[in-house]
Structures are given as structure tokens and as C-alpha cells.
Design a protein around this nucleic acid. Structure first.
Length: 481
RNA sequence: CGGGGCGUAGCGCAGCUCGGUAGCGCGCCUGCUUUGGGAGCAGGAUGUCGGAGGUUCAAAUCCUCUCGCCCCGACCA
């Protein structure tokens, strides 16, 4: 709080870490790569959870909980899956002082243990579809970690569904991708690109992986959520089968999809500025903060009376409002403090406002005088606050969208690709007909990865920027977290 | 695991070259004055100098070993 946050263009990575520390979102722990999520950061995660959970339930899913420990042999049942996750597993070999007969894996994801349960639960086509989500923590022993973006242990939700047919399962995969997109754009106010992952980037064990990719303030990409169509691979590995209407035994088609605490990092980086966080009103733990102002003791009582009137009007109308009662800090300090913490709207109430039965609104997305509106009548304060919160929600999304468009470039040759990437960064959109090896080479030479083959932007035929082959497919490349 | 850097008060750092009473800023505590954009003054508390061993009358400082963290690279939600 004391020292200023490192400006973004001086050192983006330091800025990110400064914001997390100063806004009290999280801090490091004694265990490498694991973080302590502090109350304010956890409140943001809870808001994310509630936005997602509501949507999951609206689309017919229910929550359940599966164990943290998974027998090692379960992972080994699906060859690609174990190969993909083996390097990052944490394994328990001792329990109660004795060496275990079979090592237990701390779940890196739960396809296997859930597959095991589904095999028992599903007998008939009448049991399908099975639509379950779980909120859980998982562990992946990553080599390099960053708070929220990549931690050894992280919190997430993982949906696991089983269906009778491929088309049902693919439909579910895409439906959940749409749910993620809706959440990202409307709740987190981050515009995302929906797309298909390349073979090199897809989930270990999936037939197809879909992603929502967002652009962060420095032009880097962040995979904010994934939805996987698993085909019958896990069904075959775990014997998840059912008798269809014709009494024929069939394997289920399964899906899985997840969003993690990485979303908190996305919100920090997609919206934050040199002043600190800028939280989208829908997710902000505190939507409106009220700062009482007075000079003389005699002014305090009338100010506080009005503060309480405004607070209860806001809370009664469903706004998450808080009064800053600290008497050991000056108003100026509080203004900066709440701006750093990203609270969308600040209400200032002082003696002159009491005189006029009005208050001052200050919006976080427009700093200084321009963002202030004087003389908001107390009588209509809740309606005005709702309107302003809505305006800020759209404004943040618009700003993020504009930023992404400015930093998205069409390229048609590898030379242009390299020049633009180096000089401007951002998303590079181009016709693409390369192989996994080509992708590998681009990564080695430029550090950019193929983020996705975007959906819903069908374009005419063109030439692959790398190979020159004719194709109607395009891809987005970027540096990514 | 390879390359680079760093461990000194809650946080950020100086001191180490050339050994001699452990310092600065912020924060924290107390009091008074302040409070509409990061308040001022006065007083005060806080350290096994990452750890172990060695050299020395004397080690934050020199030597050896060790542990940990950060950055860059290979892996990834």
C-alpha cells in the first residue's frame, strides 16, 4: 500500500505482482508455487464461482464431490492421459507411517476417478446424459509458477458428462464453451475468442479441445477456460457403457470442461491499470464504497446519518456496498486505496453534500475529475448507482475489446509474422495449414504458440502464411501465459 | 535441471571492497494538531544480519559448506 505500483509499461510482470500484493488478493506461502488466497481475492473467486455455478445449474448440471486421492493405476488406464500428466504429478507413497501398496496420486484432474464412478452408475440409455460438476482443488507440479495464472495447487470446477451419442457429447462440449464465453464476456467483461485447440495444445486424452482465449493488457494471450470432447477414450478405459434402446451395449461419449482460479489473474490483467485493479461490477466483492468526509466534530453526526441512509438504500436495492469507517486515514488516502482495490464506484459524502441532500459519485474507469458526478440526489441514489454500475460493466468490456482489436494483426507471411510479433506483439491472425512440427518450429523461433483455430469466423480460401498451402482455415498465434 | 541474481526489522533496501557499538525509508505503537485526492510534528517498539562450521582478541563484513528465494530457458489450466 505504501509504495506505488510499478507502472505497466515499465515492467508488466512486476505490475501484476504489485497489484496482487497491494490489493491483498494473495501472497506466497512457504511451499514453492502455492499461494495463500486472502479474503479479498477469495471473495472475487466466490463471485466467479457463483456466476458459473448458476449457469451450470441452468443448463441441467448438478454438483458432487469426488476424492482428492486417485490410485496411480487409474491414470495409467488411458495412455495419452498418463503420458500428458505424469511429469507433473504429486504422489503420496506413505500413509499412516506405512508405505502404501499402491501410490496415490493427488488429482491433477478427475476424469479417471469420475470415470470409475460413472461406469457403476451408468447401465442404461435411460441413465444418460449424466451431467455433473465438481468444485475442487487440484495439484500439478509445474516448474514455473505465477500467482493465479499457474500455481502448484489451484481451485477450479471440472464438469464431467456422459452421453449416448457423439453428437450429444459434442453438443454438450460446445454448449459449455458457450457458457464460458457468456460468463467471460458478461460477468468478467473480458471478450474472448472461442476456438479449437491444435493437436499440440489439446488436453491429454481428448479428441478435441476447445478454448476461450482472452488478451491481457500486455498483448499476451491467456487460456481462460477449456471444454473437451473426450470421445469414447475414457469410456473404453473405464468401461463406461450402457445398453441402448436396441439392447446393444455401447460406450458412452464423455466430455469435461473447466475454469480455474486463473480467471482471477485474467480479470487483473485484462482490466487493470497503473492505479491498480479495475473490477467488473458484476464480480466486484465491493461494488460501491462510501467515503464519509468531515472536518469538525460537529460535522460528523449529520454526515454519518446520511452515509447510513445511502448505505441502506444501496444494500436494499441489492448492491454490495461498504462504508469506509477508518478515522485514521484521510479521504485522499482512501480514494487511492479503493481505486487500487478496483472498487467500481466510490460515493463521497461530506458536509456540503449533507446541505444539498446529494452525494458525489466517482467511477473507477475514469480517474480524477472526469469520473466524478456531483449532486446526485439522495432520493434516487440506488437507481443512479445501478445505472452507473451497468455503464462501467459495459465500458470495461468495450475497453478490453478495443484493446484486443488494436493488438490483433493480420499477417500473410512468416517474415511479417516475426516482424509484427516482435514490434507490436498481440494476436496474429493468419491462414494456417501447418503441421504440429511447423507449430513447434514457430514456438522455438518466436516463443509464440498457436492459441486456437477460431470458430465462427469462416473466411474465404487463402494461403497458409508459413507453408503457402491453400486453406480456408485460420489460426491465432500469440505469446501466452 | 542449465544460466544469472539475491538472502540484513513487517515490507523495500544501505552497510561488506578495507573486520571494531547494526542503519535508512515505508509501515507499526503513543500523543497532539489534521481530514473534499496518498497529512504534520514529537516520542517509541521491532533484528538469532538465511543456517552450520572455520579464521580472528573481535565477523553482517573474510573462507568453506549448506538451505531458500527471484529472474531467464525447457513443461503447463
Amino acid at each position: 500500500m505504501a509504495d506505488k505500483i510499478t507502472p505497466q509499461d515499465e515492467d508488466y510482470s512486476r505490475w501484476y505482482l504489485d497489484v496482487i500484493r497491494d490489493a491483498e488478493l494473495a501472497e506466497s506461502s512457504p511451499v514453492r508455487g502455492s499461494m495463500i488466497i486472502r479474503p479479498y481475492g477469495y471473495a472475487l473467486w466466490e463471485a466467479i464461482q457463483s456466476g458459473l455455478d448458476r449457469r451450470f445449474k441452468e443448463t441441467g448440471h448438478v454438483n458432487a464431490y469426488f476424492p482428492l486421492f486417485i490410485p496411480m493405476s487409474f491414470l495409467e488406464k488411458e495412455a495419452e492421459h498418463v503420458e500428458g500428466f505424469a511429469p507433473e504429478l504429486a504422489v503420496v507413497t506413505i500413509g499412516g507411517g506405512n508405505t502404501l501398496e499402491e501410490p496415490l496420486v493427488v488429482r491433477p484432474t478427475s476424469e479417471t476417478i469420475i470415470g470409475h464412478a460413472y461406469a457403476k452408475w451408468i447401465q442404461s440409455y435411460r441413465d444418460l446424459p449424466l451431467l455433473i460438476n465438481q468444485w475442487a482443488n487440484v495439484v500439478r507440479w509445474e516448474m514455473r509458477t505465477r500467482p493465479f495464472l499457474r500455481t502448484t495447487e489451484f481451485l477450479w470446477q471440472e464438469g464431467h458428462t456422459a452421453h449416448a451419442t457423439e453428437s450429444d457429447a459434442v453438443e454438450e462440449t460446445l454448449r459449455m464453451l458457450d457458457v464460458y464465453c457468456d460468463f467471460a464476456e458478461n460477468d468478467a467483461a473480458i471478450p474472448v475468442i472461442k476456438g479449437l485447440k491444435s493437436d499440440r495444445e489439446k488436453f491429454a486424452g481428448a479428441v478435441n479441445s476447445y478454448t476461450i482465449e482472452g488478451m491481457m493488457g500486455n498483448g499476451w494471450a491467456l487460456q481462460m477456460g477449456t471444454s473437451h470432447y473426450l470421445g469414447t477414450k475414457f469410456a473404453e478405459a473405464f468401461n463406461i457403457n450402457f445398453l441402448d434402446q436396441n439392447n446393444v451395449n455401447q460406450f458412452c461419449h464423455t466430455t469435461s470442461w473447466g475454469i480455474s482460479t486463473r480467471m482471477v489473474g485474467a480479470i487483473i490483467m485484462a482490466h487493470g491499470d497503473d492505479q491498480g485493479l479495475r473490477l467488473p461490477p458484476v464480480l466486484a466483492p465491493i461494488q460501491v464504497v462510501i467515503v464519509p468526509i468531515w472536518r469538525k466534530e460537529g460535522e460528523k453526526a449529520p454526515v454519518m446519518t446520511m452515509v447510513e441512509r445511502v448505505r441502506s438504500a444501496l444494500v436494499d436495492s441489492g448492491i454490495r456496498a461498504k462504508v469506509d469507517l477508518r478515522e485514521d486515514q484521510t479521504p485522499g488516502f482512501k480514494f487511492n486505496d479503493w481505486e487500487m482495490r478496483g472498487v467500481p464506484v466510490r460515493v463521497e459524502i461530506g458536509p456540503s453534500d449533507v446541505q444539498q441532500e446529494s452525494v458525489v459519485f466517482a467511477r473507477r474507469d475514469q480517474l480524477g475529475k472526469e469520473g466524478k458526478t456531483f449532486g446526485i440526489p439522495v432520493a434516487g441514489v440506488a437507481e443512479e448507482a445501478h445505472a452507473l454500475l451497468n455503464a462501467i460493466q459495459s465500458s470495461l468490456r468495450e475497453q478490453a475489446l478495443r484493446g484486443r482489436e488494436e493488438k490483433t494483426h493480420r499477417v500473410s507471411s512468416y517474415e511479417e509474422f516475426q516482424t509484427v510479433l516482435q514490434e507490436q506483439g498481440g494476436f496474429l491472425h493468419a491462414h494456417w495449414a501447418g503441421t504440429t512440427e511447423d507449430e513447434e518450429r514457430i514456438h522455438d523461433e518466436t516463443k509464440a504458440t498457436l492459441r486456437c483455430l477460431p470458430m465462427g469466423t469462416e473466411e474465404g480460401e487463402g494461403k497458409c502464411f508459413l507453408t503457402g498451402k491453400a486453406t480456408n482455415k485460420t489460426a491465432i498465434f500469440a505469446r501466452a501465459y
